[in-house]
Design a protein around this nucleic acid. Structure first.
Lengths: 216, 216
DNA sequence: AATATTAATGACCGAAAGGTCAGTAATGTA
DNA sequence: TACATTACTGACCTTTCGGTCATTAATATT
C-alpha cells in the first residue's frame, strides 16, 4: 500500500538517468571541498543530489572513482580557460596582464570551481597522481600564458627584465589567497573585498610600493 | 619467558612519561599535515612516535583532543613570532618590511610548523573554532605588525598612500603560496626556489614591474 | 632481592561508513 | 490496460578504526 497521507516529505521517485551524474558530481564537489575526501560521507553526497546512496553506485564504481571524476570534470573548464587565446591583443602588456587575471578571477576564481584548488591542496598527498594531472593540465598551461604576457612586456621594453617564473608566482599568489579565504577562512573577521584586493595587487605589481621615482 | 631470540625488531619497552606527549604531538602534526585529520590513523601516529595506540590515550582523551592539542601547541611559537618587537628600528620602512618577512620565512615558513597553515586551511570547515583561534592569535597579530610597518612607511613619505589591509594580503600571499607548494605540490615540476621567489617579490613589491618612471 | 607503583601494551568491542543486492516502481510500448 | 524494461532504493553485509581494559613489565623504594 502507499504510505498513509505521504508524510509531507514523500518526494515521488523520478528516473533521470542522464541528469544524475552531473548532479552527483556537483554535490560531491561541494562536500569534498567543504569537508575533505575522507570526512565526506557518500550518504550525504547522495542526499545532496536527492538520491539514495545505492544510486550513486550506478554511476560511479567507488568513492575514489567519484573523487577522481569530480577532479577530472572540474578541470575541464579550467583547462579551457587556460587555453583561451591571447590572440592579437593590441593594448599594453600591463593591460593584457590585468585583463587576463581579472577574467580568470571572474570566470574561475569566483565560481564553485575554484574550490578544486583547496581540494587538491588538501588531498595532494593522498592522491599524488591527481596533483600531477592538475599540475600538467592547469598549472603548466596557465603559467605558460602568463609567461607569454610577461615576455611580451619585457620584449617591448614595457616591463623590466626579471625572473619570469618567480614573477608568475608573485602575480598569481593573491588570487590563490583569495580562494583560500573564500573556502576556508570566510567566517573570520571582516573578510576581504576581492575587488579591492585585485586592484591593490595590480597597482603594487605595476607601480610598486615606494614613492621615489625610478631611473629607466 | 622472554621472546625467543627477540626477533630482530624487539625494541625493549621504555617508560618515558614526560617525553611522550611532545613526541606524540610531533608525530601527529606530521601525519595530520600530510594526510589530513580524518585520513590519519591513530595507530600510525602512535607507531610514528614509537608507541602503541593505547599509550596515546594515556596522554590525550580522543582524536579530536589530540588534534586540538597539535594546533594549540603549534600556535604558541607562531604567536611568539607575531609578538616579536619591531622596537626602535632605525632603517627605512622598506628594509624593515623585508627584514620582517625574511625572518618570518626563516623562522616559521621554512619549519615544520608552517604545515599548520595547510592543516587549518584543509580542516577549516570541520573545526571552525580552531580557525577562529588561529585567526585571532596569529593572523590578526601578524597583520597588526605589518600594518604598523606600512603605516610608518606612509607616514614618513617612503610609501605611497594605499589601502593597508589589501596591501597586507598582497604582501603575505607569496609566503603562503610557498607553504602550499612545500606541503602539497612539492612533487610536481621543477619546484620553486624560495630565495629567488622572495627576492623577486620584494623587488616587485617595492619597485613594481614597469620600467616607466613615476611622478612622486 | 623483594615489593609496590604505574607506564605501556595486546586484544578486544562497537559504531560508522563503504559497498552490495533483491526487490520496487517509474516510464515506454502495444 | 497489460506488460517489459530498468532506474532506483531499503536493508543488509563487511571492514575499518576510534576507543577500552585487563595484563605486563620497567622503574622506584625498601
Amino acid at each position: 500500500m502507499t504510505p498513509a497521507v505521504s508524510c509531507a516529505s514523500a518526494a515521488p521517485r523520478r528516473r533521470r538517468k542522464d541528469a544524475r551524474p552531473s548532479e552527483l558530481l556537483a554535490a560531491a564537489l561541494e562536500l569534498f571541498v567543504e569537508k575533505g575526501f575522507a570526512a565526506t560521507r557518500l550518504t550525504d553526497v547522495a542526499a545532496h543530489a536527492g538520491v539514495a546512496k545505492a544510486t550513486l553506485y550506478l554511476y560511479f564504481d567507488s568513492k575514489e572513482a567519484l573523487f577522481r571524476a569530480v577532479v577530472a570534470q572540474g578541470i575541464v573548464p579550467l583547462f579551457a580557460a587556460a587555453q583561451s587565446e591571447l590572440g592579437d591583443y593590441s593594448g599594453s602588456a600591463s593591460d593584457l596582464l590585468v585583463e587576463l587575471l581579472t577574467r580568470w578571477q571572474r570566470e574561475v576564481g569566483a565560481t564553485p570551481l575554484a574550490g578544486l584548488y583547496k581540494l587538491i591542496i588538501a588531498e595532494a598527498n593522498n592522491f599524488p597522481e591527481l596533483v600531477q594531472y592538475y599540475h600538467d593540465e592547469v598549472i603548466v598551461r596557465g603559467r605558460a600564458m602568463l609567461a607569454d604576457v610577461l615576455r611580451r612586456g619585457m620584449a617591448s621594453g614595457e616591463f623590466r627584465e626579471i625572473d619570469v617564473d618567480a614573477t608568475i608566482d608573485v602575480v598569481i599568489a593573491p588570487l590563490l589567497s583569495l580562494i583560500v579565504w573564500r573556502f576556508s577562512l570566510h567566517r573570520c573577521g571582516a573578510g576581504v573585498d576581492p575587488g579591492l584586493l585585485l586592484q591593490t595587487h595590480f597597482d603594487l605589481l605595476l607601480h610598486g610600493l615606494c614613492v621615489q621615482r625610478r631611473t629607466p
